[in-house]
Computed example of a mutant assay.
Amino acid sequence: MTAPIRRSGADIAISIAVLVLTVLIGGAAAVFGLFLLAFLDHCPPATCSIEGAVNAVFTALLVAAGVGLTGLILTVIQLVRARPGWPFAVGTLALCLLTLFLGGVGYSAAVG
């Protein structure tokens, strides 16, 4: 008979909290991106690319969602294996923030 797997309560709590924060930031970014796109009607055509702005926002949101889902899966796998999951959760948050930041840079470049 094998001993039961010991899981760290702190690791589970930190992983869950960071992943929930990632989802909340993603949701806020989606709402913010929608508002940015909703008010593009004052964009001067000489210096503004509406298509570029839409592509920047949607690409950033889709990539962040993919990174978030992948990070969630990897974190859960680590937690099920009774290995530290928080580095994966924190890495997921960091990569999602980086993706959203780069999407903001792309949006800014598109609207000039």
Rank of each mutant, 00 (worst) to 15 (best):
M1E: 09
T2M: 04
P4D: 02
R6Q: 12
R6V: 15
R7H: 12
R7F: 10
S8E: 10
G9W: 03
G9D: 08
A10W: 14
D11H: 08
I12D: 14
I12Y: 14
I12M: 14
A13P: 09
A13D: 11
A13V: 09
A13K: 14
I14H: 13
I14T: 12
I14S: 11
I16V: 14
I16P: 04
I16N: 14
A17Q: 11
V18N: 03
V18P: 04
T22W: 12
T22R: 07
V23Y: 11
L24H: 07
L24Q: 12
L24R: 07
L24D: 08
I25R: 07
I25Y: 10
I25M: 14
I25G: 08
I25V: 15
G26N: 13
G27T: 09
A28W: 13
A29E: 09
V31Q: 04
F32G: 08
G33S: 15
L34W: 15
L36Y: 03
L37F: 01
L37P: 02
L37M: 10
F39E: 09
D41H: 05
H42C: 10
H42S: 15
P44G: 08
C48I: 04
S49Y: 00
I50G: 00
I50C: 04
E51C: 04
E51L: 12
E51W: 07
G52T: 11
G52F: 09
A56V: 11
A60H: 07
L61W: 01
A65L: 13
A65W: 05
G66L: 08
V67M: 02
G71Y: 02
L72H: 10
I73F: 12
I73Q: 11
T75D: 05
V76D: 02
V76M: 05
V76W: 07
I77S: 00
Q78R: 14
Q78S: 11
V80C: 03
V80T: 03
R81K: 15
R81H: 09
P84R: 15
G85H: 05
G85E: 01
W86Y: 15
P87H: 00
F88H: 01
A89W: 07
G91I: 01
T92E: 02
T92W: 00
A94N: 03
A94R: 04
A94E: 06
A94K: 03
L95K: 06
L95G: 00
C96M: 13
C96H: 00
L97Y: 11
T99W: 06
T99D: 12
L100Q: 04
L100P: 06
F101V: 11
F101S: 07
G103S: 07
G104C: 13
V105Y: 09
V105D: 09
G106D: 00
Y107F: 15
Y107P: 01
S108P: 08
S108I: 11
A109G: 11
A110H: 07
V111R: 02
V111M: 04
V111P: 04
G112M: 01
G112W: 00
